[in-house]
Design a protein around this nucleic acid. Structure first.
Length: 199
DNA sequence: AAGCCGAACAACCGCAACTGC
DNA sequence: GGCAGTTGCGGTTGTTCGGCT
């Protein structure tokens, strides 16, 4: 199976070496990336532009925050995911120094399991029916009491901010007010009743 | 010490959207 | 409008590493 964007040349794949990282950093810090497709040629790398772009964005950018996620970041991810679903790039915008790939990995490896251990469906954030919950619990084999519960107490105020960023046709919430009182602010629904955008 | 296994992280792939001609 | 090249995104796979037996 070839790499479509660069199947004309022989390109290296797999993990990046420190030398490759250095070449890429040196090139981008002095010239900027410009067109990613020409970066490997000018930087002297046997990689495709796509791979260079990913490496820079996810690992080499100086503004990246490394290390584990804080409890606050974790809560933000959960809250925004509830509104946006698997839009990792959008979620990552709420976490300065974090990338979509990082957020996605953290979700899949950690948060998803915690939610399931609490009997919550990680896709909808709704409670899983008790008969299915037992199966979920057995599947992830994590003691519920050992997990830090996620707070949804302040969700309404947070969602007000997040929902403003979403395209109106996708997430315009039905107004609880009659049309005659359209100057009233839209009331956000409670955490458990808000419909999620279809993905 | 060696092997196994699962978690975490890094990178790839395919697709859709965007842009310029 | 059609096409080709480029970019961005999300899903998936591959690799590494640490804990356990």
């Amino acid at each position: 199976m070839g790499h479509r964007c660069c199947n004309k040349q022989k390109v290296k794949r797999g993990l990046w070496s420190p030398e490759e990282d250095e070449k890429l950093v040196n090139y981008i810090t002095t010239h900027g990336h410009g067109s990613w497709s020409s970066v490997p040629k000018f930087a002297g790398l046997k990689r495709c532009g796509k791979s260079c772009r990913l490496r820079w964005i996810n690992y080499l950018r100086p503004e990246l925050k490394r290390g584990s996620f804080s409890a606050e970041e974790e809560q933000i991810i959960i809250d925004v995911h509830r509104i946006l679903g698997n839009r990792w790039a959008q979620i990552a915008k709420h976490l300065p120094g974090r990338t979509d790939n990082e957020v996605k990995n953290f979700w899949n490896s950690c948060i998803k399991k915690k939610l399931m251990a609490q009997g919550l469906d990680p896709k909808t954030h709704n409670l899983i029916p008790s008969n299915q919950r037992a199966a979920h619990k057995a599947a992830c084999n994590v003691s519920q009491s050992s997990q830090q519960p996620f707070s949804i107490i302040n969700l309404d105020s947070k969602m007000k901010d997040y929902s403003m960023e979403i395209n109106p046709p996708i997430l315009t919430l039905p107004s609880p007010y009659p049309s005659s009182s359209s100057n009233q602010p839209p009331l956000l629904q409670t955490a458990t009743s808000l419909p999620l955008p279809s993905l």
